[in-house]
Design a protein around this nucleic acid. Sequence first.
DNA 1: CGCGTCCTTGTAGCATCGCTGCATGGATGT
DNA 2: ACATCCATGCAGCGATGCTACAAGGACGCG
Lengths: 297, 297
Amino acid sequence: MDVRGLEALRAVRSQGGVTGAAAALHLTPSAVSQQVAGLQREVGLPLTERVGRGLRLTPAGEALADAALDVAVALERARAAVDDFAGSPVGTVRVSAFASGAQLLLPALLSRVAAFDGVDADCTDEDVAQDEFVGLTDRYDIVVAHRPDGSRAWAGVRAVPLLREPLDLAVAPDHPFADRPGVDAAELAGQRWIAVREGFPVWSVLAVIGEASGAEPRVAHRINDFHVAAAFVAAGHGVSLLPRYTFGGAPHVRLVPLTGVRAGRRIDALLRPDRAERLVVRRVLDELREVAADVVR
Amino acid sequence: MDVRGLEALRAVRSQGGVTGAAAALHLTPSAVSQQVAGLQREVGLPLTERVGRGLRLTPAGEALADAALDVAVALERARAAVDDFAGSPVGTVRVSAFASGAQLLLPALLSRVAAFDGVDADCTDEDVAQDEFVGLTDRYDIVVAHRPDGSRAWAGVRAVPLLREPLDLAVAPDHPFADRPGVDAAELAGQRWIAVREGFPVWSVLAVIGEASGAEPRVAHRINDFHVAAAFVAAGHGVSLLPRYTFGGAPHVRLVPLTGVRAGRRIDALLRPDRAERLVVRRVLDELREVAADVVR
DNA sequence: CGCGTCCTTGTAGCATCGCTGCATGGATGT
DNA sequence: ACATCCATGCAGCGATGCTACAAGGACGCG
């Protein structure tokens, strides 16, 4: 029962194919295919089956992939066992975050991590659709992800809540709502919206507001980058939803709290269970939680 | 974190040295030494330390070896996970038993196992000192071991109780006790004993009898093989302790139950936890328990 | 209906890894 | 002081696992 083969099988499952798995493992598709083939030869029954031009795990493959996770966890636990004796943990932690989350959290995280000798944090920004965050955990130790209030939790990974950030209505300084202490969702019918692209996080929050206002929101532009959206709002091209902590002090836009609906996003740290066993990773994760706590204060 | 290295480390611990580990793993000492050295390079701190001409694990090595056991268990669980889909389990199970236990249990076990297609049991008889049974689990999947009543349990392995076998007083047919329904331990002072060698199982039972009779037992001969001991007894060279089920029907000796002391041995199956995860092993083990239950009836 | 594209799988070649065999050095016991 | 035992280092060789490339299927578009 080869560990490399098990790792490959897990990657095939979580990435949905040989090609994706190869990318996640920094290998060629051929290598991954051979690993899985070797595993099949060993167990004597098919672990994958072709579906269209991709492939999917058979029930046996699923069961084996589940077991493979436990193997990976046990291995990382072994590493952690010696780290306990090696004194302070050492190593590099790969952190990914969506753009606005990165802006909000990573600078402070890096400052804190810099205080630890031998601990490095490799940071990357990855903006992906809602359901692609989980897949990123194959490539990064910690994935900072966000999802709308009330959406269902992340599946198949360990999720550590970092903070909840309210989404405020962003308007231009000369907008009628600009100096109001709050705006009720019911008042928002007829506004022109700058929204994120469909399927991306916090997109569904707009649907909730639409329901509360009684009318389908008019989406004028699809902008994923909040800074670009803020510029659109500042120029009077419409209103938008912007995260409070990230854009609280931004010039040229005013943030007005929404009432009547619960609009916000939850920011979580996503980790694969095996990665979560690494002592360095836990250390960096602890700091990340501290940073998030500071933001809310 | 290499699995082979972890396996080597565990073997070094349980066998007490590189040479023993190499034998258990069917490798050369050089290979084992290199594996452990590679592991040390990876973790960056010493896992073994020389003591005399052998070596011992450092605390870090102990911790890692413990974790390595969990890794092995997880790997075997993975194998078992696919076996659940493969239908009936298939494979070879290596069974070892001490001589009289082998005589008592293994023939019936083989008959039962023969009924399973694809399941093989490789049987071996291994007569070792009391504290060497545990080490045998590195070489065999199931080790049938015995220990006196009241001795402390096996350490570091999974132990499955099979049966308790009373030890009766064996005398020649013309011995004064031969036709008695029972003999009290207090009556045994002054008898000449045929005993097993020091350190071997059921040796300590004689000490208990000595205490009960008030006098140090006179040991005339040290015979490990019960059949040889029985022959000595039959020839009138002394009395001995023989297991009831194994020698119940033996000609030329009479078994007389002992009263006043609790004399018996416990027969257990010893397994390494990772081996115990294999479905075939569990299957054979279940049969072995059935065989043991039949013996008591 | 045919073509291009995407994805997996098979093959050849090459680097690396892990094992064996042998030699060495240190510790023990006679 | 010598023989013995044990762990370790080194050279050599076979096996393993990777990359690069090619081939075969399935999907979608014109």
